[in-house]
Simulated scan of single mutants.
Amino acid sequence: MVGVLSNQVDRMDIAAGDHIYSWRTTYLYAHHGIYIGDAMVIHFTKAAGHEIGTGTLLDRFLFSSSLATEGPPCQKCGHLINKQQGVITSCLDCFLYGGNLYMFDYAVSAAFFLAKARGGTCTLAASDPADVVIHRAQHLLNNGFGMYSLFKNNCEDFAIYRKTGLLVETSFSVGRSGQLASLTAAFSAVASSPLRFLTTSAGGLAIVTSGMYSVGRYVSDIGVRRDVIKVPVERLVEHWSRDPAPASQQRRQECHGDGHGGCVPVSRS
């Protein structure tokens, strides 16, 4: 388990199937991927300048998932990157883009999760075995992961699905991204709650706001929320090939993992 203060690790500490990330834009946002060994990473990208597609300066400011396009191609992975967006393979150096290496932690305790004030670093959800994770990553490398969306289907969503097989069912909520869940929780704690008016002291306001922020992050985590389903990667790709609508609009089916990235239906009581 990575420490509470920092998730930074050395390259020798990661293994195939690990969920890794690197901070971008002065720690504003992070880019996530799945390490597959031999200093190579599979990750979900969007072309530079098109992260949110607003046509404003924000498109240039948020470049968390795009790869560097200036200079000569990387000698190790340049021949693999025949596109600058979608699910791609690149070397670890290109993935890090000059940043440090961090490990995303799974199956953490509630106390540990709440101690990590910054979202997008850990989850209460358990990871599937490494071979299942790599199978999903390789399958989607060949078949895609749908349309990139900063708020619904981003690089962190991609990595978390690779590790857990879980997808958010409801179409009105954000995806599995802990980073966006933290932003939503922070906004709700500061701007939307009448509880912040129950105290007049600065200390009391800080306690109420931080408490609401922590609760908001916790209930949004993929490991505790109820609007998630486990979807085998083959069924996910088949659905996208028939219908480009988000997977969250599929008919609900609760299921167990079958140990191979598959799904065993569970009847409701």
Rank of each mutant, 00 (worst) to 15 (best):
M1L: 11
M1S: 14
V2F: 01
V2L: 07
L5A: 13
Q8D: 11
V9L: 05
V9D: 08
D13A: 15
I14E: 03
A16S: 11
A16Q: 04
Y21Q: 07
Y21W: 01
R24W: 08
R24F: 09
T26Y: 11
Y27N: 15
A30D: 12
A30H: 08
H31P: 10
G33L: 00
Y35K: 02
I36P: 01
D38G: 01
H43Q: 03
H43Y: 10
F44M: 06
T45R: 14
K46Q: 15
G49A: 03
I52V: 11
T54E: 13
T54V: 05
F61Q: 08
F61T: 06
S65A: 15
L67P: 00
E70W: 06
G71R: 08
G71S: 12
P72L: 10
C77I: 02
H79Q: 12
L80T: 01
N82K: 14
Q84I: 12
S90K: 00
C91E: 05
C91L: 10
L92T: 03
D93S: 15
C94M: 10
L96I: 06
Y97K: 11
G98A: 05
G98Q: 04
G99I: 00
N100D: 13
N100R: 12
N100W: 02
Y102V: 02
Y106L: 08
A107T: 00
A107F: 02
A110E: 15
L114S: 06
K116C: 11
G119Y: 03
G119I: 04
T121H: 02
C122Q: 09
C122S: 15
A125D: 06
A130Y: 03
D131A: 11
V133H: 05
Q138R: 13
L141I: 02
L141V: 04
N143V: 01
M147K: 08
M147T: 10
M147F: 02
S149P: 01
N153W: 03
N154A: 07
N154M: 03
D157V: 07
F158K: 00
A159V: 00
Y161S: 05
Y161H: 06
Y161T: 02
R162K: 07
S171Y: 05
S173K: 09
S173T: 13
V174A: 08
Q179D: 09
L180Q: 12
A186H: 00
F187A: 14
S188D: 14
S188M: 10
S192T: 06
R196Y: 00
T200G: 15
S201P: 05
G203H: 08
G203W: 04
G204I: 01
L205H: 14
L205K: 15
V208M: 09
V208G: 06
T209N: 09
M212N: 07
R217Q: 07
V219S: 02
S220N: 13
I222E: 08
R225P: 08
R225C: 05
I229R: 15
V237R: 09
V237H: 10
R242W: 03
P246A: 07
A247C: 07
Q249R: 14
Q250K: 06
R251I: 03
E254V: 07
H256W: 10
G259I: 09
H260S: 14
V264A: 14
V264R: 14
S267I: 02
R268L: 15
